[in-house]
Computed example of a mutant assay.
Amino acid sequence: MVRWEPGTPERLQQAALELFATRGYEQTTATEIAQSVGLTERTFFRHFTDKREVLFLGQDVFNQAFLDGVEAAPAQAAPIEIVASALESAAALFPDERRDHSRTRQLVIEQNPALREREAHKLRSLAATIADALRARGIDDPAATLAAESGVTVFGIAFTQWLRQDEQRSFGTITTDLLRELQTVARGTGA
C-alpha cells in the first residue's frame, strides 16, 4: 500500500470525483475510493468524515479567499465594493485550467439531492461569514447581510456561467460583469 505520500486528501478527492462521475455517487464506497489510490479505508476516514465531504475539500481555503478580499478592500469602501473585492480574491481559485474539474464536480453534485443540499449549505455559510466580516468592518444590518447575500448570489450565477461549455471568459471577468449588471438592476436602469 502507498502510505505517507504528500497530497493524500487531494489524491482521494480526485479519485472520488472520477469514480463518482463514472460509477455514480451512490454506487461508490469510501473503500473503493481509497483502494483506487492504493490506500486503506481507514486512511480515507482519517481525512474525511464521509464520502460526501471528499467533494468539499478546501472549504476553509474557499472561505478564506473571500475574507482576504473583504480585508483587502479600502477602509471607506461601500459594502458592494467590499463584496467586489471578495469576489475578485475568490476568482483566483477558479483558473481556466480548473474548469473541466469543476464541471465534473458540479455534475456529480447536481445528480444527488444530499450533495445539492451540502453545496447549498456551503453557500449559506459563506454568506454568513461574509456578513460577519462586513459587520466587523462597521457595516450595519441590513446592509451587511444584503451585500453578503448579493455577493454569494453573484458568485453562484458566475460559477454556473463559467461552467458552460461555450464560455471563454475568465471567472473574474464574469463576476465583474455580473456585479455591473447587479448595480444596473439596483439603480433601476436595466432593460
Rank of each mutant, 00 (worst) to 15 (best):
Q76S: 14
S150D: 10
L57E: 05
R99V: 05
P95M: 10
A86W: 08
A148N: 01
A78L: 13
L163Y: 05
E26W: 11
V108Q: 01
T40Q: 08
A78D: 08
F94D: 00
E97D: 12
E97G: 00
D177M: 11
E149R: 12
A191V: 13
A15E: 00
V83F: 02
A147F: 03
T189S: 14
A148P: 02
T173P: 00
A133Y: 08
P6E: 10
E41Y: 12
T43M: 05
L17R: 04
D96L: 13
A136H: 07
A30M: 09
H121V: 06
I130E: 00
T189V: 15
E18D: 14
E110D: 10
A136S: 06
A136L: 12
E167Q: 15
F159G: 00
F56Q: 07
D96I: 13
T40L: 12
G58D: 08
Q14T: 14
E5D: 07
W4Y: 13
D141R: 14
R103K: 15
G38I: 11
T43R: 13
F44S: 05
V154P: 01
A73N: 12
L67F: 07
V54Q: 00
S85H: 12
G24V: 12
G172Y: 02
A120K: 04
A34G: 10
G151H: 03
R169I: 04
L163S: 11
R46Q: 14
T104G: 01
L163H: 10
E117A: 15
L39E: 07
S170M: 08
A77Q: 07
E32S: 03
Q183W: 10
E110A: 12
R116W: 00
I80L: 15
L87I: 03
P113H: 04
R137T: 07
L179H: 03
E10A: 05
R118P: 00
F66I: 02
A77C: 06
T49L: 08
S170L: 13
V61C: 01
R169S: 10
A148E: 04
